[in-house]
């Protein structure tokens, strides 16, 4: 959840996660915006494990999603933008 005390936010923007609008603010990256929306996981491994944020510094590639059509994008390293389209990764889409 976003910290309110002593915090200013950027301009509100809307990103779309599997078609659902999610509120975010300029300057945020995608992963925190997804966490703030109550999501804990936004990827399912080929063997069925849910995954979300892990290392937070762009190393582990656990938090990837398809962003504006580009697959395997690290959501922790990608700044949000108005109208950004996020598709969560599922094994059926990429491995079968």
């Amino acid at each position: 959840m976003r910290i309110e005390a002593n915090t200013r936010r950027g301009q509100p923007v809307t990103i779309y996660v599997d078609g659902t609008p999610v509120q975010a603010y300029t300057g945020e990256t995608v992963a925190p915006a997804l966490l703030a929306s109550g999501r804990r996981a936004w990827r399912v491994t080929p063997w069925g494990e849910p995954r979300g944020l892990f290392c937070g510094i762009g190393i582990c590639f656990d938090c990837t999603a398809t962003v504006n059509g580009v697959p395997y994008v690290r959501t922790c390293q990608t700044p949000v933008a108005e109208g950004m389209v996020i598709e969560t990764e599922r094994p059926l889409e990429r491995d079968q």
Binding site: M1, R2, T29, L35, E49, L53, F54, C55, G56, I57
Partner: peptide
């Protein structure tokens, strides 16, 4: 350890310092 919600302390630091977000309740 692969469950969502298990993160590194570095991830918590990034959320806190850069994004002003708590990693959980």
């Amino acid at each position: 350890w692969t469950l969502p919600g298990v993160i590194t302390t570095g991830a918590a630091q990034t959320l806190l310092k850069e994004q002003r977000l708590l990693p959980g309740q």
